[in-house]
Design a binder for these strands. Structure first.
Lengths: 369, 369
DNA sequence: CCGGCGGTTGCATACGTATGCAATCGTTTT
DNA sequence: AAAACGATTGCATACGTATGCAACCGCCGG
């Protein structure tokens, strides 16, 4: 516990407490010689400004709350992508001199107001509340709500959002597969209104097709909740439909991992028989077998933009929702379509497999990020 | 910003500010009828206690700092295991009514004192400071340092540590391989003084051997820093040594993933030719190919123990360092040793591989955690 | 010589809460 | 009936800082 107060530092420095406060906060009112002396003594005595008093007097907390949606009741782990975002956001906030109050919460009505009413935080960043965008938009309409949400950015919508350009992400992923010669490309992911992000990825998928005058049948779309198991089940349904797909674009990396496992179980091998592209670029995707071609979201950039946007909001500046550009990372799960593969849409016994293919493939680049 | 104060609630409720404060904090001095009325009004007006004032007056912050070592300058991502720990710790703190202040920091001398001097936090939990255990032990000697570190627990050492029982973890992993008939088991991991955790895992590895009267040669140990690449390089060295190992116990899951990739590149297949066991049970290890047999550290339990230990410390109670029991999770990367494999220690062309083995193996349990 | 001005400093105060102490009131004990 | 007691409430204050305002000092221009 700190027993040293600004008053004691003042006494030691032969000045008043006011001057100590001003010196520490970098006020131009203080003579540089005085400031130097005060800082030296404060440092010697290991003095730190008492945050309680500072917050009370200044009515500022220099703290941002980071709310991460906790869906652990659904048995699923926290999405690794969010964990990467947490680190990025925290570092960005630290750079700006702000602390991060971390919380994993179930959804409830009054968080934002609570954080600000109690002066625990000056603003809130929300992560993983895709299912609650409607409510968040409502919150966003309140002028005094300092809240930025990582999520779908929709033109003209109320509220403040920062998100990945999912349409473009879906586009480059699909375009990559089209460029490899694939013409029957499945889409694995939820395209319902519940998941605007995934809808956008699907929309990019359609856009890439339309550019080439193609019109993918709805049969090629398989709904999956954004987990590994979701991808697994969706891929099974897809195989049973026998639509002749030679590639699959999955709305998330976890979907992709699940789909690859389902394909393998049915003796459909990636990338020999089918190419797979994911979305997110989770850390471990470079380690998967085969290493996953995917669309990377730049979490470090996202962290900076989220924090800067929120601080603008806090300062009363005008703020616009922002889209961040994703990037295609080509690894080993996607390759040129083979004529024979076009014919093979269902499982059958095969001798080749992922393992051998790795060796047969051109020397794989080791992507350890 | 909260314009509602306890005084205003008091006026509305027809009581004094003191009574409001007491009612909100659950003091037994308040009549239950009065308390009810105060709570109702406070709720209606969406009143929240101003944390600044509360902290100043009570000299408590009801906040714990969570310091995560940032080694991003070394190009490596944050260890996924720590990310899992962060979530667990935060949830445990929330249950106890404490907020978590999250920070990713380079190592510096004065954190703990700084957090407490400024009354930002009542205590500190440190994650990922394996390389600084000596310094942390010194800190631990200070009576007023409220700090618990996730790390190696060593009998009689000063300071407060909570950690996994790495010796036992190493033991059960190795014992599992021995039970499968393996007799030449490699150890991949750093056994230098820098990494007491890994030393402990190695010690468990030796203990399992000694129980059967075996004495693994030092040739079977390959040093690796705890990354995927470290495991990759160590495995390559191991293969070149041609010591005839049929199994490998890796100090971390990332090491294991890297090693499996290196083996595959040399046409040594897991688990056909060699069994591999990891350590940590990262979320994605169930998705790896083959799904990794590993030693799980229960992060949820770790979070609870860390928080409870720290709170005990804050309250001035006696505290003992605690070891948490790890658990062996058997998946597909380990299997009974084959006579022929004993002879084959170097790479040679093979037709079988992980993919086919998955199908040949007894129906693999899908472990999605 | 005086008024004034820029550069520094100190004084006094308020931020909103938690808590020791005194006060009040109704009830029980002697 | 007086006294004592328990339950409940209000009063008054201090926590440590940030900041408006006044004060002070040295110097310049008039």
């Amino acid at each position: 516990m700190n027993r040293v107060t600004a008053g004691e530092i003042a006494e030691l420095a032969g000045v008043s407490q006011s001057t100590v406060s001003r010196a520490l906060r970098g006020s131009p009112l203080v003579n540089s010689k005085t400031r130097e002396r005060v800082l030296r003594i404060a440092n010697e005595k290991n003095y730190k400004v008492n945050t309680g008093a500072s917050r009370l007097r200044s009515r500022q907390s220099r703290t941002l709350a980071l709310l991460v949606h906790d869906d652990s009741e659904m048995g699923s782990d926290i999405n690794p992508f969010f964990l990467s975002m947490i680190a990025a956001i925290t570092k960005a906030a630290t750079e700006k001199g702000y602390d991060i109050l971390l919380s994993f919460q179930q959804f409830s009505e009054n968080w934002i107001a609570d954080y600000e009413n109690s002066n625990k935080a000056e603003g809130v960043i929300m992560l993983g509340y895709g299912g609650y965008t409607d409510y968040i938009r409502k919150i966003g309409m309140l002028d005094n709500a300092h809240c930025v949400t990582w999520g779908p950015v929709i033109d003209g919508q109320p509220g403040h959002f920062v998100g990945c350009d999912n349409v473009h992400g879906g586009y480059i992923a699909t375009r990559h597969l089209l460029d490899l010669g694939h013409r029957k490309i499945a889409f694995i992911g939820d395209v319902s209104d519940d998941c605007p992000e995934f809808q956008a990825r699907y929309s990019g998928y359609r856009k890439a097709h339309e550019e080439l005058g193609l019109d993918p049948t709805p049969q090629l779309q398989a709904t999956a909740n954004p987990s590994e198991l979701g991808g697994y089940e969706a891929a099974e349904r897809l195989i049973d439909r026998a639509v002749g797909h030679t590639a699959a674009f999955c709305a998330t990396d976890l979907n992709a991992i699940g789909a690859i496992r389902a394909f393998r179980n049915r003796n459909v091998h990636v990338p020999a028989d089918i190419s797979v592209v994911g979305f997110d670029d989770l850390v471990s995707m470079a380690y998967a077998t085969p290493a996953l071609t995917t669309v990377r979201q730049d979490t470090a950039a996202a962290g900076h933009v989220l924090v800067e946007t929120l601080l603008d909001l806090v300062r009363g500046n005008d703020v616009v929702s922002r889209l961040l550009p994703p990037e295609l990372i080509v690894r080993q799960s996607s390759r040129q379509v083979r004529a024979e593969a076009m014919a093979k849409s269902r499982a059958g016994p095969r001798l080749t497999d992922a393992g051998r293919l790795d060796n047969a493939a051109p020397k794989a680049r080791f992507n350890s990020r």
